[in-house]
Each structure stands twice: as structure tokens, then as C-alpha cells.
Amino acid sequence: MLRLGRGTKITLSVIAALVLISTYVPLMVIVLNSFNASRVAGWPVSEFSLEWWGKALGNPAVHAAVFHSVVVALCATAIALLLGTLASFALQRFRFFGRDVVNLLIILPITLPGIVTGVALSNTFYSVLDPIGIQVGYAGMIIAHATFCVVMVFNNVIARLRRMNPNLEEASMDLGAGIGQTFRLVTFPQFRSAFIAGGLLAFALSFDEVVVTIFTAPPGIETLPLWIMNQMARPNEANQVNVVATLIILLSLIPVYFSQKASEKAVP
């Protein structure tokens, strides 16, 4: 058993404390400024008010941005769940020429800088497809998000498939169950938690994506991250952004919590 010296423990504790402080203190500043009565965000907050909460919650632009973010994230997650799961089964259960190359190509989008992916997709949509009469529009933004969301599902599901016992599926089919029934009653329950965890992570990743969205969003369409970025250029509206950011912080706890629970269940 590894034992750490007193000095090492103190050093690690200090580093951990500094990391936690640098992470969560800025978040607390955002939350407190959402109640700032001043028109300009600042610190310390001298007077508290719910004025900015009322303005943000009643702002049609915020409603539209949330709607677009949710729609894009849901559609991208649905595509990712389908393609990521199919790819996981194909690469785990079958051996074929170019298997390692396919595995690399699936994972590559998440390793590339977002700006590279955004520029590549933008050039494809507007310089290649548009001239031949194919206008992707809103669907293009969904496809762009799905390219990196697939990786989240793929990594979760294939990791679980590698730990599954194939004898259970063989026993099910030996007892007369068909492929569909075996998948529904034996296979899917074994990787269901990883499937859900991948979906939640994919949704969270898509919901707050900004770089790829800048290059692929149709004119006049703003997702919530784009709206926040545009509003930050207006200092007098900063506290409205703080309200929206506070809501995102609170709502983000939900998928992260359930994703962790699902991941824990995925461990045999």
C-alpha cells in the first residue's frame, strides 16, 4: 500500500485546494452578480436585486436561444446514440480490414481543435454543397454537433462491451431467443447504463458548444452560448448573462449527476 509522507500530503492538499478555489470562486462571483442591482457587473456586490432575473426570464431572445440549443443538442444526441452504438458493436464484435483506421476516424473529431472542425465544416457546407444546390441550413449545425457527440457515446459503449460476457448472449440464443429478443433482454440491459451516460455527456457537450456553432449556425440563429458571447460585448447587459449562466450551472448539475450514477452502474 502506498504511503505518502506528511510533506507530500500537505503539498497535495494545498494544490487541490487552489484548484477548487480557482474553479468554484469564479462561479460564485457569477451567481452573486446575477443578483447585482447595478447595471454593470462588479465585485463586491453592494446591493442585491431580482431585476435582472425578471429581465432575463422574460427576454424573448433568451427563450429562442434556449430552444435552439435544446433542439440541436437533442437531435445531435439522438444521432450520436444511434451511430455511436452501431460503431461500437461493429468494432468490438467484428474483425475486418481497416478496423483500427475506422476506430481512429471515429475518435478524431473530439481530438481536433473546435476551430479546425468548424472551419472544415463551414467550407464544406458553403463552398462545396451550396454551389451544387444543397443547402444544409439548420441541419448542418446539428450534423456538426453530432460529429463530436458520436465520440462520447462510442467511448462509453465500447468500453462496456469489452467487459461484457458473450456467453450470456450465446446461452440466450441456445434457449431459442432470436437476435432481437436477445438484444432487448440480455445485451442492452448490460450496456444500458453506459448508453445513458454517453447520451447525457453528448447532450451536455452539444448544449454548450460555441466554436463549431459560430461557423455552422445559419444566419439569424443563436444558440444559448452564442447569445451569451454576443451579450458579453454589451457591459450594461452583463448581469442578464450572469442570470442565464447561473441557470446553466444549476441545470448542468442534472446530466452530470445522472451520468455519474449511470457510469457507476456500468462498472461490474
Rank of each mutant, 00 (worst) to 15 (best):
L2Q: 10
L4N: 12
R6V: 10
G7C: 01
I10T: 11
I10G: 03
I15S: 12
I21P: 10
T23I: 14
M28F: 15
V29R: 10
I30F: 01
I30R: 01
L32M: 15
L32Q: 10
F35E: 01
S38R: 11
A41V: 07
P44G: 15
E47P: 14
A56E: 12
A56S: 15
V62F: 05
H63W: 12
A65K: 00
H68A: 02
S69G: 12
V70W: 00
V70F: 04
V71M: 06
A73G: 10
L74I: 15
L74Y: 04
C75T: 05
A76Y: 04
T77P: 02
A80M: 09
L81V: 02
L82P: 07
L82S: 12
L82V: 15
A90G: 11
A90F: 01
L91S: 04
F94L: 12
F96H: 07
F96M: 09
F97E: 13
F97D: 10
F97G: 13
L104N: 13
I107H: 00
T111V: 15
L112K: 10
G118Q: 07
V119L: 15
L121H: 06
Y126P: 07
Y126F: 15
Y126K: 14
S127C: 05
S127W: 05
D130W: 11
I134V: 13
G137R: 14
Y138A: 03
Y138W: 10
G140P: 03
A144P: 07
H145P: 11
T147V: 10
F148N: 06
C149W: 05
C149N: 14
I158R: 03
A159L: 04
M164F: 07
S172H: 04
D174H: 04
L175P: 07
G176A: 04
T182N: 10
R184A: 15
V186P: 11
P189I: 09
S193Y: 00
A194V: 00
F195A: 02
A197K: 01
G199Q: 00
S206E: 09
V210D: 11
I214V: 14
T216D: 04
P218E: 02
E222N: 13
L226E: 04
I228A: 05
M229N: 14
N230K: 15
P235G: 03
P235D: 02
N236H: 14
N242I: 01
V243S: 06
V243N: 06
V244R: 00
A245W: 02
L247K: 06
S252H: 05
L253S: 08
I254M: 08
V267K: 00
V267T: 01
P268Y: 13
